[in-house]
Amino acid sequence: MSLVTTSASVWRDIRRPQRLIERSAMVYRRNWIIILSGLFEPMLFLLSIRVGLSQLVGDVEVSGRRIAYDEFVAPGLLAAAAMNGAIFDSTMNIFHKWKASKLYDALLTTPLTAADIAVGEIGWAVLRGTIYATAFLITMAAMGMVESAWVVMAVPVAALIGFTFASLGMAATTFMRSWADFEYVPAATLPLFLFSATFYPVSAYGDWSWVVNLSPLYHGVELVRAANLGVWEAALLAHVAVLVVLGVAGTTVAARRIEKLLLS
């Protein structure tokens, strides 16, 4: 009960999180090339798979339909790109602002609150992830990998994936003591990247396929894939629910930790 009430108080404290996004926009106005170069990597993955691997693999069966391998992988890569972008923004970058430049200490002397900081920083990560996802989607369409017009729904889905992972990443960052702790970040994201039905259908895991449900990224991949195929079913709501719950929990923890550690 008390956890519920304190969590609610975090969300009531949100006033002007958009100021944090304004700040990030100001910073990246000069460094836009960094954002641009981030678009490049997932597109290279896609191109490499299309050029070489597709022919090796042949078609893959999904939802009772046979599609080319590159069309199968593309949604997985899009979801993974949204995750990786969000994680990068919400771990290293946030740790630097927290510990090295003391940005959040300075922000808390203004009318902004800990909740504003958490929501604003996560919001920026979501925004950046959404830009990446949109660019990736345009590339997919240009390469003819799009199956249905519903694929535009992949953009809000990518934003949701970004929200989930930025929240989890920021919450985890509030527990980090030094840069050395960041070694554990790829230790967590690499298995997610590889084992979330990104590169092959869940059926490849046989009896162990239920384990994949434990990966938050898997739920994102399923949603993007459904968007690309234009297959809408009620079961997708469960995937959405998982991502939303994790995201809300992560944001709450992040805001509570900032409050606890910086407002002592």
């Binding site: 022919q55 090796l56 042949g58 298995p191 990247f193 590889l194 590169f199 092959y200």
Partner: peptide, 28 residues
């Protein structure tokens, strides 16, 4: 650890897709 993950993730997983179909024999 990292190569092990890649090996199981891509090698075994994608491998099973490839060895089942496509033009594997012709290429590899």
């Amino acid at each position: 650890v990292q190569p092990f993950l890649y090996l199981v993730g891509v090698g075994v997983g994608v491998g099973s897709l490839i060895d089942d179909g496509g033009d594997r024999a012709a290429i590899l």
